[in-house]
Design a protein around this nucleic acid. Structure first.
Lengths: 195, 195
DNA sequence: CGTCTATTTGAATGTACTCAAAAGCGGTGG
DNA sequence: CCACCGCTTTTGAGTACATTCAAATAGACG
């Protein structure tokens, strides 16, 4: 059954009985997006959390100079949303679109609110999800502050090999906060060092 | 009573009855630190979450070049810990020390675990704390990627005026990921623009 | 007052960006 | 199956942002 991945994801942190499972899956909304399709547009309200069943999404922010800065990638078995907008109800500050054809399960803000009350275990689950997200972002801040672009790139390759294989150089550069031209230079240097 | 600040902090998100309050306060450990005293040392296990009752703390990471990179500040009414170490039990990757004489209330990992089970509302409370921390760090990543040092500095002044007044330039530079020399230059430019 | 640290200033340098142009690659239609 | 189009990646020259190092000045604290 198609819910098995998301249920397994949840079972890493909490145990649900049959009733709780049905309650949870009943509020999930399955959606398909084609490559390049937009899931969330900056300025609109973000009312869902997305669980990626299959495919690849990216969240990015557009600055004044029209540069795109990638906030995060999300492939199979990742959760992604504009947490700021989702939590506050204010306009989204990031865009989310599909890097590949993608299937997601969406959890609506209101449904999640109900879920917290009817199945409090979900408070624990999302506490842990948030905890991990916080830790991840804090590490990224430290890396951005303390490492040069070349080291950040190598670190990225080690940390997310599954992304590195799958994503075009341009996207990785944007995630690292450097230009594609410069990443191309770094990559060339790296091959020289190996040979 | 000295617990009034921390209880008010908690009451922003959950309502506790008398029994739950006493249960909570009974596990708090009050500690005082002198200016420059070390609260957490990199490499050691971090077993507590700190609520700052009074004073100012800083969390920083030391890179290979012995540069200090400030991860966060925490003044009155802030929570601070090495969440990575606290959650995983692995050695801390950051240091925490006191920028001023400081009073904190510490919540031990085991006590928090018990609290989650005996008073599940705390799952909600810390879910929200983690959510906010995640959002904050994600915004910081975006800012670090998309803004020049000068804009990051102005942004910092707007966002945390209470820090800006209280903290030496050197510390702010470290938080922004630039050298104190360069921040000094930026500041000089700013005064010229105003006059 | 003296000592220690923080801040300022300036010159030389390094890291990463901009702009422009060429080369590579994938998909589409004839 | 090939030719063309659009997008990604590479390459290089010139430039901007930020660092390093060194030295002078200013502040804080005992």
């Amino acid at each position: 059954m198609e819910y098995s991945d998301i249920l397994q994801n949840i079972s890493k942190h909490i145990k649900l009985d049959e009733y709780e499972i049905s309650r949870f899956t009943s509020v999930l909304v399955r959606k398909e997006f084609k490559k390049n399709e937009i899931i969330l547009k900056e300025g609109l309200q973000c009312n869902v959390i997305n669980y990626v069943q299959q495919g690849a999404l990216r969240a990015f922010h557009v600055d004044q100079d029209i540069d795109e800065n990638i906030v995060m990638f999300a492939i199979n078995d990742w959760w992604i949303t504009d947490m700021y907008s989702f939590v506050t109800g204010k306009p989204a500050i990031i865009n989310i679109d599909a890097l590949e054809d993608t299937i997601v399960f969406q959890l609506h803000r209101d449904d999640l609110g109900d879920l917290y009350n009817s199945v409090p275990k979900f408070e624990r689950f999302f506490r842990i999800v948030m905890q991990n997200a916080y830790i991840r972002e804090q590490l990224r801040v430290i890396e951005n502050l303390s490492m040069k672009a070349e080291d950040r790139y190598n670190n990225f390759l080690n940390k997310y090999p599954q992304f590195a294989q799958r994503l075009p150089l341009k996207q990785i550069a944007s995630y690292l906060g450097i230009t594609p031209e410069f990443l191309s230079v770094l990559r060339k240097r790296a091959t020289k060092k190996i040979t």
